[in-house]
Amino acid sequence: MESDRTLPAKTFALKGADPQDASLRVLIVPHAGAGAASGQGFAEHAPADWLVATARLPGRETRIRESVPGLPGLVDDVVATARALPGTAPLLVVGVCFGAIVGLEAVRALQRDDSVRVAGMVAVSQWAVTEKPDPERRLLRDTDDTDDVLAILDGFGGVPERLAANEQMLKLVLPTIVADIRAVEDYSSGPDPLLRCPLLTVFGDEDPLCPEERTADWALFGENTRTVWLPGGHMLLTDSPALVVDALVGNLDQFAAEQS
């Protein structure tokens, strides 16, 4: 049974299996500026017995009038969403780029109170967060000039060319992208507290932001970690959602212990 439901608070959108029949629940925390629509391609390629939820963070889609909070507020929002998801099937948290940082901290928060059992975390297109920000780089919080903002955003993956070329759409979406990146631009973290669930990391083999030397430290974040390299660039969820689904399907054995 296909579903497309939202809570009254509209903090996520659901597609896929009925919550009571699902074999797996997937919560996607999308890339900077993206809303729940960004998970549609993934949901269309996911197995029929998966329930796919995509977080709708403040400042976008039906939450456009809400201010984008800092990182603690974004984490709280995702934690609340994880707790609100229907069904009891094992939960995978899939964080994409900026969303991997929010997702990591949300999983850590859920571990602290055991309110939701997370069967696994998947980090897509995000270099290891042990990397400390360059103290010499320009910060988004220090400029409102559009050209400067776009140049700084290149270091975080930039904005899609089709969006940058559409002045009207860029004006609408850019403030949310900037607010999201401002929330994480000073972020770095050591491995502790370790993840108690398995961690799968997924990267594009042509992504200049995520070469092996920038991603290897993810292996430190838990006792059960695994990496998949896919053909493609940085925007894997947008450009190759079927391949991201395949990466999860091909590594479900990694999460088997958590699902039993």
Rank of each mutant, 00 (worst) to 15 (best):
Val52Glu: 01
Ala22Gln: 03
Lys171Gly: 14
Asp76Glu: 15
Pro175Trp: 14
Ile101Met: 07
Val75Gly: 00
Pro47Cys: 08
Gly33Pro: 04
Arg112Gly: 13
Leu199His: 00
Gln168Tyr: 09
Gly70His: 08
Leu199Ile: 00
Val26Ala: 03
Ser38Phe: 02
Leu194Arg: 10
Ala179Leu: 13
Leu194Ile: 10
Asp49Ile: 11
Phe42Arg: 10
Trp127Arg: 11
Pro231Lys: 12
Val124Met: 05
Leu153Glu: 04
Gly95Val: 08
Asp253Ile: 00
Ala84Arg: 10
Val118Gly: 01
Arg5Glu: 14
Gly250Ala: 06
Ser240Lys: 15
Pro90His: 00
Arg137Lys: 03
Arg138Val: 10
Leu150Met: 09
Pro8Phe: 12
Asp77Ile: 09
Val122Gln: 03
Ile177Phe: 04
Ile28Phe: 00
Gln254Glu: 11
Thr130Asp: 06
Phe12Ile: 07
Ser240Phe: 11
Leu57Ile: 07
Ala219Ile: 05
Val93Thr: 02
Leu243Glu: 11
Pro231Ile: 11
Glu206Pro: 07
Asp217Cys: 13
Phe203Thr: 06
Asp253Leu: 07
Asp144Ala: 13
Gly16Arg: 01
Glu212Ser: 14
Phe98Gln: 02
Leu27Phe: 01
Pro211Ile: 05
Phe98Ala: 01
Cys210Asn: 13
Phe42Trp: 12
His31Leu: 09
Gly99Leu: 13
Ala165Ile: 12
Val149Gly: 01
Gly103Pro: 00
Pro90Asp: 00
Ala89Val: 05
Ala242Val: 09
Lys132Ile: 08
Val245Thr: 00
Thr54Lys: 11
Leu243Tyr: 04
Arg214Asp: 03
Ile177Ala: 04
Leu150Thr: 01
Ala13Asp: 08
Leu199Met: 01
Ser38Tyr: 02
Arg162Tyr: 14
Ala80Cys: 07
Gly70Glu: 12
Ala36His: 09
Leu195Pro: 03
Leu91Val: 06
Leu170Asp: 01
Glu44Val: 13
Val79Phe: 00
Gly95Ser: 12
Asp239Lys: 14
Ser115Lys: 12
Ala32Ile: 00
Gly204Thr: 14
Gly87Tyr: 02
Arg65Asn: 15
Val249Cys: 11
Asn166Gln: 07
Ser115Ala: 15
Ala257Phe: 14
Arg108Met: 07
Asp186Met: 12
Ala247Lys: 02
Leu209Asp: 08
Glu258Val: 10
Asp21Pro: 10
Val96Gln: 06
Ala183Gln: 05
Ala216Phe: 15
Ala89Cys: 05
Gly95Lys: 04
Phe255Met: 08
Asp207Gln: 08
Ala257Asp: 15
Glu2Lys: 14
Glu66Val: 04
His45Gln: 10
Ala34Arg: 04
Leu174Ala: 03
Leu163Ile: 15
Asn224Met: 15
Phe255Ile: 10
Gly120Gln: 10
Asp154Ser: 13
Val124Asn: 03
Leu140Pro: 06
Val149Ile: 13
Val124Trp: 04
Phe98Cys: 00
Lys10Phe: 15
Gly155Val: 05
Gly33Ile: 02
Pro133Gln: 06
Val26Gly: 02
Thr11Phe: 11
Pro198Val: 05
Val184Thr: 10
Thr6Tyr: 04
Arg112Ser: 14
Gly95Pro: 03
Ala55Thr: 07
